[in-house]
Every structure is written in structure tokens, then in C-alpha cells.
Design a binder for these strands. Structure first.
Length: 454
RNA sequence: GCAGCAGUAGCUCAGUUGGUUAGAGCACUAGUUUGUGGAACUAGGGGUCGGUGGUUCGAAUCCACCCUGCUGUACCA
């Protein structure tokens, strides 16, 4: 045995990647099955696109000028740069552009898929995670935007959340469009900074956001963030609109844009009979490519990390209207709106919210006394499996004690003992591992007795 | 990326002002019981004390740098 530790492979995981165990996966499966049911009910098509795309397709075509293609995992094959997708929206835009002629208009699709981000992970955020997306492609009708909110809420409630557990907040980018016009701010860099500052209102509060709009802000750890450099009168206008929520930007531009969006969305949401929403002008969603209504799904209960500390959980999903994204792939006038949810984060929160009665099905364990009697055991096994009872013959080697310990550890509901004594009498011993009771059962009655236990 | 805190066995941690061969609990393996788990007892395996370099007769302990984790912040498609 070589003792050189450096030659051994590491058992640690790469930064930001995690193993996921059965308990979490079963809840995730439950969430996914709810999503699929709702998607079918709402008339969305199921789509899958590959994990890799050409880097160009998901990088350069994104109109987020700040970071064109950072944060993705990439490699070069013989000819081209490929990247793992970092969301499902960019691949969708690529797919729509590629298949535009054949697709129905509007095109409604949903997608479940793993996405990867090459950046430093935070609490509850990893570099690999599962995302759910639903989008309407090719319609300007805001009924689509409203329906996305209704639909997402149906999914959440199917998963066991109450109305008080979550809120869908929404706004429209046309408010800030009008604001920038009235404040005469044309620099896109400055606009982006203001958008990002306002996006933090709910988390930091006005006093901190005020600093971000002005000279800058120092956080608890002493880190300094440079501000947008607005004047105090400009900041005051923003305060009236986004905090006091009394004044709205005025003028024709506002009436035609934001005013229309707000009246239309509110009307549709009301007609759908949907009430669990809140209009909040401070919902921005930092991204540059949104053009109209934007929405965000927030949880209203406390979420703790593995050490039991309450953490800033943030939203579990959101979306909005992006009328210009698809056109990046060609001269297609293609409005679109969509929503996405981080499933792993939702599952993480759900695990704390509710004790799901989702337990893994563990097998009945048939103990092995004598390897020469293996035919007898396989006969019992076949009988159980024919009746769809999860079961196995003890797969290891060793004494009965070891077999019992194994059965206990995996959470088996019961073991079957069939040694010399039982074989003589033709009756197996069935031991209930929950109660510790043992009963003697004729082989033909085994299935019925087991069904009483499981 | 920036900042604060932390890193000793698989896990949770102890380890005195630097001093022989680095400890405990849980977990693991074997036995007490060659046909009985979840309890108890006994024994055992498992660590170059996150890494590298330095100070020193001597470093888990002091210093520097790096890596990793947590929390906040930035960014978030």
C-alpha cells in the first residue's frame, strides 16, 4: 500500500457542486410532476435543448453589455468554442430563430434542464442547478404575462404552499423608461446602475439605496460599492415614485407605455380571478433585456441554512417580457415573455416549510441463512416482486446480525427469516422492523401479511 | 471580485504561555450472542493538525503567502 497521499484522487467536490440525496430528489420529482401537470393543463409544449451551445449563441447575442460572455464554462472542440448553457432563455431564442418557419405563432413551450454558471456560489446557490422555464414566443398580448403569474402560483400551491407563503410582485420596465426620460438620463451605464440600485430596495431599504444612487455605499463587512452619482433632486424624484409610490412619471411617454401596461396587466390579473399579486414599482430585475412587465416570486417564510442560521433567501424565480431578444438571431420581429424558477432552491425551501409525506420505498429484506438454499429465497423474492413489493435478498455476506443491521440501516419495513426451522415447518418468520414483532406465516400468505406492514 | 470569520479523524469539536508517540463523542469494523436490528459493554482501524515556505533545539500552536468553507456585498442570464 502506497502511503503517498498526493497520488490519491480528491474526494472533495469542485467548488459550487453538490451531491443530492434521495430525500431531496424525491421532493424534486414531486415538484416536477406538479409542473408537468400544470404545463399540460395550460397548453405548453415540452422542449429539450442540448447542454452545450456555441459560445456565440449564448454569449455575444445577449444584449447585456456589461458581461457579454463571462461566467460560463467553455471549451474548444476541433473548430469552435462551446459553452454549457447558463439559462434556458438564450437557447430558446436560438431554437426559435432556427425553427421559426415551422413553429406555431405564438409558440408556448416549457423546459426543465440543468444550467451551469461559472461564478462564486452563495448560500443556497450552486454552479450547477435545475431550472424550469415557461415562455410565450410571438405575442405582444399581456394576457400572456398575466397568465404566467397565474400559472406559477398554481404550481406553487400544488406543491403545498399556502397563499400567505408567497407573493408575486410585478412592475413594468416602462416606468423606469419614463423616469429616465423625465430625469434626462441617457447614459446606458448610468441607467443600468440605477436599475440595479432600485432592485435592492426590498432587501436594503431606502436609506441604503439612496447611497447607491448617490455617491456609494459601504456594507457591513466594510466593502464599498460605487454609486450612480445622481443629484439630490433626482434622488428625491425617485423616492416619490419608488418608495412613497404616490408620484408617477408624467407625460405622454408614461401614459402610452407604463400606464397602458399597468392598466392592461391589472385588468387581466383581475379577470383571471388572481389576487395573490402585488404591484411594486421597485421590482426591476437587474437584467438589461427586459422591455415590459417584469415579475418576481418571493417566499414569505424564513429559510435556514444547514447550520440553522436564517439566511437572505431572495426570490425563487421571476421573469418578464423580452421583446427584442429573439431578433438578435435574425431579422425576426418576435416579442416574447417568460418565467423561470430555480427548482433546487424551491425544493430547499419546501423541505423546511412542510414535512412532505414522501418517504423512500425501502425493500423487504430476505435474510440468507444458507447459500445452498438460495433457490428457496429466490422463489420468495419472485413471489413478492410479482406482487410489486419492493424486496431483495440480502446482497452482502455475513451473519444474521449483520443482515439485520443492514435492514435497519436502509429503513426496511420488515425482514423475512427462512432458515432450517422455518423450512421444516413450511412457514417463514416475518419480522416487522418498526415494532419488532415476529409472526410465523405460511409462504402463500406472505404477500398479504407484508401488505399489512407497508 | 471585495470584505469579515473559520479550517485538527467520515461528522461535531477539545488541545493549557511552542515541549515526548495529537485526544473525546458520534460514526465505522470485529467481538460479547456461529438464528435477530434500533440499547449496553470490550477491542480495533482511521490524522504528515487545509497546503507551501519561514522563525525555532523543537510548531496543531508564532509569521507570510496560497487553497477551501461560511456569512455579507457585488454580479446574477
Amino acid at each position: 500500500m502506497a502511503k503517498d497521499k498526493k497520488t490519491k484522487p480528491s474526494k472533495e467536490l469542485p467548488l459550487g457542486f453538490v451531491d443530492r440525496q434521495e430525500k431531496e430528489l424525491l421532493i424534486r420529482d414531486f415538484v416536477i410532476s406538479n409542473i408537468k401537470e400544470v404545463m399540460i393543463k395550460y397548453g405548453f409544449q415540452y422542449l429539450e435543448t442540448p447542454s452545450f451551445e456555441y459560445t456565440d449563441s449564448i454569449g455575444k447575442f445577449l444584449p447585456d453589455k456589461d458581461r457579454p460572455d463571462q461566467g460560463v464554462f467553455s471549451f474548444k472542440d476541433e473548430k469552435n468554442w462551446l459553452s454549457l448553457r447558463y439559462d434556458l432563455t438564450a437557447p430558446l431564442a436560438r431554437y426559435v430563430a432556427k425553427n421559426y418557419m415551422e413553429l406555431p405563432k405564438p409558440f408556448k413551450r416549457y423546459q426543465l434542464g440543468t444550467v451551469w454558471r461559472n461564478e462564486k456560489p452563495g448560500p443556497g446557490r450552486f454552479r450547477e442547478f435545475l431550472q424550469f422555464d415557461a415562455d410565450f414566443i410571438g405575442t405582444k398580448n399581456l394576457m400572456a404575462d398575466a397568465e404566467l403569474c397565474v400559472m406559477i402560483s398554481e404550481i406553487l400551491e400544488k406543491c403545498g404552499l399556502d397563499k400567505k407563503d408567497y407573493t408575486i410582485k410585478w412592475s413594468t420596465r416602462k416606468i423606469t423608461d419614463a423616469l429616465f426620460e423625465s430625469l434626462k438620463i441617457s447614459s446606458s451605464n448610468k441607467r443600468l446602475k440605477i436599475l440595479r440600485s432600485l432592485d435592492k430596495l426590498d432587501r436594503l431599504g431606502w436609506n441604503e439605496v439612496k447611497k447607491l444612487l448617490g455617491k456609494g455605499r459601504k456594507d457591513q463587512s466594510g466593502d464599498f460599492t460605487e454609486g450612480a452619482g445622481l443629484s439630490s433632486s433626482q434622488t428625491q424624484d425617485i423616492y416619490e415614485i419608488f418608495v412613497k409610490k404616490e408620484l408617477m412619471p408624467t407625460g405622454d411617454k408614461y401614459e402610452e407605455g407604463a400606464g397602458k401596461d399597468i392598466r392592461s396587466m391589472t385588468n387581466y390579473l383581475d379577470v383571471f380571478g388572481f389576487e395573490n399579486y402585488k404591484f411594486d414599482p421597485s421590482i426591476i430585475r437587474g437584467l438589461e433585456y427586459y422591455t415590459g412587465p417584469v415579475f418576481e416570486v418571493n417566499l414569505n417564510f424564513e429559510v435556514k441554512n444547514l447550520k440553522g442560521q436564517a439566511i437572505q433567501f431572495g426570490s425563487i424565480g421571476g421573469g418578464g417580457r423580452y421583446d427584442n431578444l429573439v431578433s438578435n438571431f435574425g431579422n425576426l420581429d418576435c416579442p416574447a415573455t417568460g418565467i423561470s424558477i430555480g427548482l433546487d432552491r424551491l425544493v430547499f425551501a419546501l423541505m423546511q416549510k412542510k414535512d412532505f409525506k414522501i418517504k423512500p420505498k425501502r425493500p423487504i429484506v430476505i435474510c440468507v441463512f444458507d447459500k445452498d438454499k438460495i433457490q428457496e429465497y429466490i422463489e420468495i423474492l419472485n413471489k413478492l416482486r410479482t406482487s410489486d413489493i419492493s424486496s431483495e435478498i440480502y446482497p452482502g455476506e455475513g451473519k444474521l446480525k449483520k443482515q439485520m443491521e443492514y435492514a435497519n440501516k436502509i429503513g426496511s419495513p420488515a425482514v423475512i427469516l427462512y432458515g432450517d426451522d422455518e423450512i421444516k415447518s413450511g412457514k417463514a418468520t416475518l419480522k416487522n422492523l418498526g415494532t419488532g414483532n415476529e409472526i410465523s406465516v405460511k409462504l402463500e400468505d406472505l404477500v398479504d401479511e407484508i401488505k399489512k406492514i407497508i
